[in-house]
Design a protein around this nucleic acid. Structure first.
Lengths: 219, 219
DNA sequence: TCAGCTTTATGAATGATATTCATTTCTACC
DNA sequence: GGTAGAAATGAATATCATTCATAAAGCTGA
């Protein structure tokens, strides 16, 4: 295909995605209609299907750009920060900050896509997962530093970090962002770090508290 | 209305809900059709609307019974256990156990309802929230015992506990329950407890590690 | 510039399905 | 057994997502 035609197609595709973002953000997946998206993009209903397999496929194309943005901005924010716990603090802050600035997108991602079986099969999801999983890198870095516990599967540590953050963001979105999402970011970091902290690491725990063994594994 | 007729209505309502559980579990909210539910319940399509405002209303009626079951069983399991951390361990185990035994229901609750704005407005949701929030009671109990930190908003502590657990369960459901959800329950409890633990409580931390102050609040 | 071919765009037609509503059937009570 | 009010019915309606036959536009080589 000629290059000229390709770029025109690309532009049209983009304008459809842009219209889709607006309409889906306003109405959610269900209530949004393909006709409205087509109208807003200035194309016929049928044309959408030249670019996307179906309504869902169009919906799932939205996160691609946003995820790239998340990833590059996060890298920028982590730049120059050393120490796994300092990076965790920054990650927590950035995660909450990101959704503070993009609540409409957050609604789509957190409340509609993240929870869909077909989305999980998507390439977009893999990309997203990989981006968010910089936590995993921070965790292993912390283990090498000796400050992060090595007695627990790192994927469980990730569940704790992302689970806590996603829960906070989801509940906030469900309440229409009626309060400041960032207001407790320091407490959240502190909590997460205390969970990740290596219990055997001298000098890592706070407040000079004397400590002793406790039972684990009891249900 | 005569009592006899009332109970007949109640029975029919139940049979519709039962049919709804089966069909929604098998196909999810979207793909399930009102006709199939009606057929399985042995009523006409239109009859559904005598009992429920619409398809969504019917859907959201499902958790009522299941939530009661969750709540009473949890109370039973906590019976006789003392100490906030022991209760947390039991809660973690029971939470994972519950979804292990009811994965189809879990899929509906965790992946479809929990994330819906209209569900959150529901009475059912309030009831559910209240049931799950026995964590809150355990947390304050632990604060009175002196073992749970008091430097952090208890709602944030709840975000950590429920966020971690719901994340674990959601990801498991999205992977079609292909592994044993309970296999890591002890690690999960340990992690959560280490996050909740009062950093100033002598004798609470593990392993006799000497500890000292660390910075908090830095991003 | 144009003929011939390919790609893209179109929107009316199709099919699926939630919901409504005029009509029928049932139930309780006299 | 007659009747009023409740409940049940399912055909009709309205709302989309998606398809597809047809038209328009883009490209190429002369």
């Amino acid at each position: 295909m000629p290059a000229n035609r390709t770029s025109k197609k690309e532009i049209k595709r983009e304008s459809i995605i842009q219209a889709a973002i607006e309409v889906f953000s306003k109405k959610g997946f269900q209530a949004a209609t393909v006709s409205e998206i087509a109208e807003r993009a200035g194309v016929a209903d049928g044309s959408i299907y030249q670019y996307f397999k179906n309504k869902e496929d169009l919906f799932f194309s939205i996160p691609v750009e946003k995820t790239k943005e998340f990833r590059t901005q996060l890298e920028l924010h982590l730049e120059g920060i050393s120490g796994a716990f300092n990076k965790i603090r920054k990650f927590v802050w950035y995660f909450l900050y990101f959704f503070t600035v993009s609540p409409e997108y957050g609604r789509l991602l957190m409340l509609e896509m993240r929870v869909s079986k077909s989305f999980v099969k998507t390439d977009t999801y893999d990309f997203l997962k990989q981006s968010v999983s910089s936590v995993l890198e921070i965790i292993t870095e912390g283990q090498h530093e000796g400050v992060v516990r090595t007695d627990t599967d790192i994927y469980i540590l990730r569940h704790l970090v992302l689970g806590t953050l996603e829960h906070i963001v989801s509940r906030w979105l469900l309440k229409d962002g009626k309060y400041d999402l960032l207001r407790h970011h320091q407490e959240v970091s502190r909590l997460i770090i205390d969970a990740l902290r290596n219990p055997a690491c001298p000098g890592a725990a706070p407040d000079g508290t004397p400590v002793k063994a406790g039972p684990t594994g009891e249900i």
